[in-house]
Structures are given as C-alpha cells and as structure tokens.
C-alpha cells in the first residue's frame, strides 16, 4: 500500500511530462506557421493572423454557435441513434447465431458501401433537411458498432455462461447484466471508430446538401473567396473533432473503469 501511495506524485509528474511532450510540437508548428505566413500576399495561403481574426469573428460567440450547433445536434442525434441500433441489432445477431449467420453476407455488402455514397439517394428521398443528414450518419457509422457488438457478445467467457445457466438466470438479466457489460470493451472500440466516421459524414453532407452547419460554412467561405474564413472553419473543425475525441475517451474510461481495474489489479 505504501508503495502505491508513494507512486502517486510520480504518476502525476509523469502525466504532466506526457502532456508537455504532447504539446511542444503543436506549439512549435503553430509558431512556425505564424512566422512563415506573416505578411503573406498569397491569395490562398493567407497569414495566420488573418485566419485567427476570422476564427474569432466567425467561429466564436454568436456567429460560431449558429454554424456549429446545427452540426453538433445532427451529429449527436445520428451517432446516438447508430449506437442504439448497432448495440440492439448486434446483440440480437450475436446471440441468435443462425440469424447472425444468415444476414452476415448482407451486412458485409452494406457496410462496404461508404455512407457518403448514399448522399444522392438521401437527397432524393429526404431533400436537404435534417432527416437526410441524420440518416446518412446512422447508415455510415452503424457498421463498426454492429460488428463489434456481434463479436463482443459472442466471445463472452464460457465460465460466465455456465454460471448463468446453472443458476437459471433469466434471459433479460443475462443480456443486460452480463452479456452486454462483458462485451462493453468491444462495443466501445466500435463506437470510437464510428464517431470519426460520423464526423466525416456530417461535414460532407453539409457541403453537398445543406444551408447550415460547419461544412456548409466552410464551402460557402471558399465560394465567396473569403479564404481566411475558410481556413478558420477547417481549424475550428479540427478543434471540435479533437474535443469530441477527448470527451469520448472520458466516457470510455468511465464505462470501462471496472474492466480496466480488473486488468491492472491481479487478485493474488
């Protein structure tokens, strides 16, 4: 126990050192960008000061919220729907093996069609509204969740299944209490992959068929030759994606805290 306590300050220091190690290169690159682009007369590669100015005017505060919020709302809706659908269907296909085997070729075919390739048909059916974007996100990002859930549900420990059978634990309790928690690490892997797909799909669908959102704003800036605004939009997009990933990692750590502890604390 004493050794664990003594290790803690070292752990925080190591984490700080890790943070610094992660930070120095972006800071350096940013500084390099700033100096290399200062006083730039190029039409396309404008000065970073101009880009940051546009970032402040267009992507922070009221104007930023008007661009970002519709995208985030659609993203959240589509991603959560995909998660629900992927986990429920995945559990069903994983547990009912004949059903899973029967639909497996169809799943393999459908997931090979990139979500963005369905944009034309989505535009035809739904027009340029929210439904089109949300359903494209669901279609594009449901597959990693579905396939990982199927695998996770199928690889539950045989001993745990024996315990459930011998104690005659009813089906709903087996699935919610044991099968899904034990598949959780795999499901989280699927969700993480799906999140980046969902971001790609939302931006692309906004560029092609939308009158609002981040993708629309970036393309609009480019068409109006507001090059600093275009760069600022891409920068904002990068920051948003980064923050979403950090947020997801937080959720993942919360969900899997017991799984992780099990791996690092062997009972002896």
């Amino acid at each position: 126990m004493a050794r664990v306590a003594a290790a803690y300050p070292r752990l925080t220091r190591r984490r700080l050192a890790g943070f610094a190690l992660e930070l120095w290169l972006p800071v350096l690159l940013f500084a390099g960008w700033w100096f290399a682009s200062s006083g730039s007369t190029s039409l396309y590669f404008v000065g970073l000061d101009a880009i940051l100015g546009a970032l402040r005017d267009d992507w922070l505060g009221q104007a930023g919220a008007a661009n970002v919020l519709p995208s985030l709302r659609n993203l959240a809706e589509g991603f959560l729907l995909a998660a629900l659908l992927g986990v429920v269907l995945g559990a069903l296909l994983g547990l009912v093996r004949p059903l899973g085997d029967a639909v497996s070729p169809i799943v393999e075919f459908l997931r090979s069609v990139p979500g963005v390739a369905l944009l034309p048909i989505g535009l035809l059916i739904f027009g340029i509204g929210t439904e089109m974007k949300v359903s494209l996100i669901v279609y594009g990002s449901v597959w990693p969740i579905l396939l990982n859930t199927i695998d996770g549900v199928r690889s539950v420990d045989a001993t745990k299944l024996d315990v459930l059978r011998s104690y005659r634990v009813p089906a709903h309790l087996r699935i919610l209490g044991v099968v899904l928690p034990s598949a959780a690490p795999r499901i989280m892997v699927g969700l993480r992959t799906s999140l980046s797909i969902a971001i790609t799909v939302i931006v692309f669908s906004e560029m092609i068929g939308s009158t609002e959102g981040i993708g629309y704003a970036i393309l609009q800036a480019q068409r109006n030759f507001e090059i600093p605004q275009m760069w600022a939009g891409m920068l904002a997009l990068g920051v948003i994606g980064y923050l979403l990933n950090i947020g997801f990692r937080g959720v993942e750590q919360l969900v899997l805290r017991r799984h992780r502890a099990m791996n690092t604390t062997p009972g002896s």
């Binding site: 001993t159 315990v163 104690y167 959780a184 017991r258």
Partner: peptide
C-alpha cells in the same frame, strides 16, 4: 440445470462478474 442445485466452478476469476 435444476432449481435446487448451485455450482461453484474452479476458475473463480472467470465465474465472478468484475463489473
């Protein structure tokens, strides 16, 4: 598996639910 039997398995680390 009948109602009146309980089983204790050899591999306790797998028979318990870590979550």
């Amino acid at each position: 598996p009948p109602d009146g039997l309980a089983v204790v398995f050899q591999d306790y680390s797998r028979s318990l639910m870590p979550w």
